[in-house]
Design a protein around this nucleic acid. Sequence first.
DNA 1: TGACATTATTTTGAACACAAACTAATAAAT
DNA 2: ATTTATTAGTTTGTGTTCAAAATAATGTCA
Lengths: 169, 169
Amino acid sequence: MESLKNSGNGSDSVLAALRKIMRSIDLHSKSLVKRFGLTSPQLIVLREVDAHGQVTAGEIAHAVSLSQATITGIFERLEKRGLITRKRSSDDRRRILVQPTLEATKCLAGAPPLMQESFVDAFEKLQDWEKSMILSSLQRLVSLMDAQNIDAAPFLAAESLETPINGEN
Amino acid sequence: MESLKNSGNGSDSVLAALRKIMRSIDLHSKSLVKRFGLTSPQLIVLREVDAHGQVTAGEIAHAVSLSQATITGIFERLEKRGLITRKRSSDDRRRILVQPTLEATKCLAGAPPLMQESFVDAFEKLQDWEKSMILSSLQRLVSLMDAQNIDAAPFLAAESLETPINGEN
DNA sequence: TGACATTATTTTGAACACAAACTAATAAAT
DNA sequence: ATTTATTAGTTTGTGTTCAAAATAATGTCA
């Protein structure tokens, strides 16, 4: 009965739920680093590096939806742990090419999942319709939010006939 | 067609979507602090303080699903900006009572929404069924994740008869 | 060639978020 | 009454994340 507290269906409820979810994910990440030595973002980045073999920070940043500055920090820690090597590209000396070490491959082989195993299990056991409902809900949110970041572009042109876009934003 | 990339429906896709969503929310928070002076977490906490009038750090931590240490940091910044005051409780001198200042009420009155206005608008305009689908999907995820955080406790008591808990863990 | 712009990465500074260790005060137990 | 445990809050250390400024290399245009 408590779930009707805040006018129930608003975007505030969405935010509250999302914050709980992300907290849970963050807690798992922090437990990973103890049991396994790497946090989730580190693991995500390392996976991506391993999948591509030889990449630049910018490519990784784009692939995992993080800023370049963030990638730099993660690279630093991965390098310190001997999981990647960095060297300047010779044909464009602005670029830094990153490569996974042998350690990295070994490490990834025994890597735990990025979310609590019990969650993964539980999620996989859901009915197909529920899994797709959840996933499509999330992707709906992604598209609703992406809209503003990209925002300027396509739709607004059409809608602007009705809603004249007040500079602002 | 690209959406089938990663074995498609797994919890990895869920995580990827969630990370994009939270990034978007974080970016908004960072833009808030420039236009308005407070970040989302600060605003969330301040709202909660204002709603309760006189509260302790622990109560707020529980109400907004953050650790006490995090609340301490946020209180510090809110205090520095003159939005709350802290003083020891006289009947239990461990407690620190927090109160919103007059500034705070003024501030909250003109506070922007916690998510991009364009998102809020777009979300409110969705069909009712879609809003509830999204919200209930999120709450489903919350409950699936909560399960593990809670679960540890009750079992151990029973199991400890068989497994004498080796310090470790 | 020299001035300017663009691109790739790093550095800096701020905030958030946690656990673990710590301080201080209260409560319980011997 | 003294020890011990619990509770409330802070401090410390690590990691994530971003924007903005700083480096550095490449490209462009005059």
